[in-house]
Design a protein around this nucleic acid. Sequence first.
DNA 1: CTAAACCCTGTAACTGGTACAGAGTCAAGC
DNA 2: GCTTGACTCTGTACCAGTTACAGGGTTTAG
Lengths: 138, 138
Amino acid sequence: MLTRGKLATETGCNIETIRYYENIGLIPAPDRTASGYRSYNEEHLRRLNFIQRARALGFTSDRIQGLLELTDAEGSHTRADVKSLTEAHIDEITEKIRDLQQIKRRLRQISSFCDGSSESATSCPILESLFEDSNGSR
Amino acid sequence: MLTRGKLATETGCNIETIRYYENIGLIPAPDRTASGYRSYNEEHLRRLNFIQRARALGFTSDRIQGLLELTDAEGSHTRADVKSLTEAHIDEITEKIRDLQQIKRRLRQISSFCDGSSESATSCPILESLFEDSNGSR
DNA sequence: CTAAACCCTGTAACTGGTACAGAGTCAAGC
DNA sequence: GCTTGACTCTGTACCAGTTACAGGGTTTAG
């Protein structure tokens, strides 16, 4: 029905990435034509779109795998499972944001020590604060 | 003066990572003892500490390379150069934070659609919103 | 019928390291 | 002076998460 190239243009996914997803088991291996070409169906399209959207939301492939397994195994999993996976992800993102904000504060601070003048870089307070044992880092 | 292992414990850097930094040119190749052991000096220690601190602040090795070159080439670079590299990095972090916040908002939104009940995951609104063509994503 | 455009496979590249095997070396204890 | 254990040396392979490319076969359009 769909060749690999068609699936790629349809989903916006790189054509090689599709093969990679098959290798790591994110996408089931499709049927092959007589000559060995991969033949994808609507379900593959749906699944790859899912993966693309989940990736855009920063889910790791492990967690995407987990989400997809919840949809595969019929009946045995609950909405609570899905929600807890999602919320674990939200928590991770929150933490990442907090880390980045702290780094940014520290960078702003050390940047403010430097006047940005045309003086030699060797005596620049930014570099010095990176060379010296820092008091307020991390 | 310092063996590779001493430098590693002194800086908290993994011993293999030191060799890696030498390979990619972040750290200059040290002198060797008669038997071929690497012999580091105070300057290497200083430089590796610099790298560790810059990494902790999220600088990529390219940019760390850039910062270190500013200190190496005497006189030809200015504080303004250092400051602009630092501010470019701050801008990148700002952007990353913004992206993550947007992702988080979207995740909160789709998570709120789901009651987290013990009903089957297959009809879970979170999964559905990942499968369907999303209106408000990205 | 031919040429372009596609697909197949395996494999290497990328970043930022980490790890391991097999060989040599150093320092301490007996 | 010799052994043992801890260290170091080199090259190489591995992780995620792709991307790219070489060298071959296939399909499709003109």
